Amino acid sequence: MTLLLSPGLAQAGIALLELLHRRPLSAQELLSGLPKVGGMSSTSALSLAEDLAWLDINETGQLKVSAAGLKVHNAEGYEAALRFILLHYVETQNPDWLQNAVYGRSRVLNFCPVGVHQVFVEAGLAGAPNDEAVDFWDWLAGIARGLQRDHLLTIGRAGERLTLIHEEARTGAKPRWVAVDSNQDGYDVLSVRAADDRAFLSIEVKSSRGGTSGTLHLTRHEWEIALDRPLHLFHLWDLSCAPPRLATVGMDEMGAHIPTDAGAGGWESVEVPFKAFESLFGPALL
């Protein structure tokens, strides 16, 4: 369960760091001797500090401030401390609202919980932008893009694994997982035409957890590689059902959705809906 951050909890965490910086305490000493820290329960403040990796334990079993906690403690002012807290919060908790950062701060402020929104306000990140605030939002968007890429990579790898299984069942030959070695080849799996025909067959794999409401993105590089290959197919995996469904798409079917250059302009990537190939989806050999 994601930690519910708020200004009050953040202030309690700052107070706890100040306390432990002056005098290390064991968790038991803290909880039994100080019912509240910074206006919040010591239990809540301690949970925040543990979740955000602000604490270490010394050789006598007492809590001390970690390197991450020192960044908050040593911050120059309240706003700076809150920004470090937000940084540690998104890095350790990966909250659902973080994905909105790729679209700009207004999306984050509209979709994050009320308590988190107020932390952004008190951290000086919701008003007129200055260089420091812009740097923070750019950093947040970078984190979100990285998570988005990780998510897309996970979906893509799932489809590639399914193609490996399908192709081995179809041909009796173990295909090569090209994409693991290099993502510059322009295709993901190298198989063969058939059990009795060992001519090489290259396959570009696209996957969606949204069923036929999903889309595939094809780059110009991937299409040009496909055109140069003697035998090439596209595997589209619908991961929204069990077992997954496969559409095997040939060059002609995919080519019908590829744009053309015009004038001085040239296309770099194209988005094609899975539903364009609805009639090709069927059970896979798994």
Score class of each variant (00 low, 15 high):
Arg157Trp: 09
Leu152His: 11
Gly61Phe: 06
Arg105Phe: 09
Gly250Ala: 06
Asp96Ile: 02
Asp196Met: 07
Phe277Met: 04
Leu25Asp: 10
Ile85Val: 12
Leu227Met: 12
His151Trp: 13
Glu122Phe: 11
Trp267Cys: 03
His73Arg: 11
Val37Tyr: 03
Val134Asn: 09
Ile203Leu: 03
Leu55Lys: 00
Glu168Cys: 05
Gln118Gly: 05
Ile143Val: 13
Asp196His: 14
Val65Phe: 06
Ala144Lys: 00
Ser32Tyr: 11
Asp188Ser: 09
Phe111Pro: 01
Gly159Phe: 04
Thr60Tyr: 10
Gly263Phe: 08
Ala179Lys: 06
Ala194Val: 04
Val180Gln: 12
His73Trp: 15
Ala256Lys: 13
Thr212Glu: 14
Phe234Lys: 00
Ser208Pro: 11
Asp238Glu: 07
His117Thr: 12
His232Thr: 09
Asp228Cys: 08
Gly186Phe: 02
Ser41Pro: 05
Ala169Thr: 15
Val90Ala: 01
Gly39Arg: 03
Ser26Gly: 15
Leu231Ser: 11
Ile85Asp: 00
Val102Trp: 05
Pro283Ser: 06
Ser269Met: 05
Ala10Gln: 00
Phe120Lys: 00
Trp97Ala: 01
Ser207Arg: 02
Val205Tyr: 01
Thr260Ala: 06
Trp177Ala: 06
Thr154Ile: 08
Ala15Asp: 14
Val178Ala: 03
Ser66Trp: 03
Ala45Ile: 04
Asn94Phe: 09
Tyr103Glu: 12
Pro7Tyr: 02
Asp51Glu: 14
Ser47Tyr: 06
Ala158Val: 08
Gly211Met: 03
Trp137Met: 00
